[in-house]
Amino acid sequence: MATQQKASGTSWVRKMIVAGALSAVSIALFLTPFGYIPWFAGASLTVMHVPAIIGGVLEGPVVGGVIGAIFGITSLIKAATAPQGPIDVFFTNPLVSVIPRILVGIAGWLIATLLRGLNRQLGYLAAGAVGSLTNSVLVLGALVLLQAIPLQLAASVFVANSLVEAVAAAILTAGVVSAWKGIEHGRSRSRLADEA
C-alpha cells in the first residue's frame, strides 16, 4: 500500500493532485470551526491558509499559488453566499479574498528556498511566518485600499493579531513539513527520554 517512491508518471499530474488535496484541507478547515484557533475576546487566529504555505514549501510556487487561489475563490464565494459576519462583506472583493492568498504559498516557497542552505527547520518556520504575514499584510492592505478600514485600525489589527497568527502558522508549517519529510524537530529522540 505504501508508495514511498514513484517509479514513473507525469510529475505535474501528481503535483495537481497534491494541490487539490491540500486545497481541500484549506477548504475543510475554512468551512468547519477548526480553521480558527479561538484566542481571546472573540478574536481568533486563522490557520486556513497554512496548507497553501505547505504546498509551496513541498511542491513549489505553482502548487502553493494554486492552493491559495482555490482557497481564495472558495472564501470569496462563501463570503458572498453565506457570510458569517461583517468582515465577510469585504471578502466579496477578490482583491481581498483571492489575490493575497495566491501570494501566500509563493512567499512560503521563496523563503523556504532561500533558507534551505542555512537550516531546513528554520526555513520551514520562517516560510510559515512570512507566508502568514504576507496574507495579513495584503488582506489588511487591500481593505485599507478599498477604504473599508482606516490605516490606524489596520495597523492595530496587525500588531494584535497578525504577529501571533504568524507564530501559529510557523509552528504548524514546520510541524507538517518535517513530519512529511521525516526531518527531526531539532531532536533525535523521544521527549520520553527526558522524563523520569
Binding site: 513530519a179 524537530h185 523521544s190 521527549r191 520520553l192 527520554a193
Partner: peptide, 11 residues
C-alpha cells in the same frame, strides 16, 4: 498519529 517519535505519541 501525529508525533515524530512513537514513544511520544503513545505518551
Amino acid at each position: 498519529l501525529f508525533e515524530t517519535f512513537t514513544g511520544d505519541d503513545v505518551a
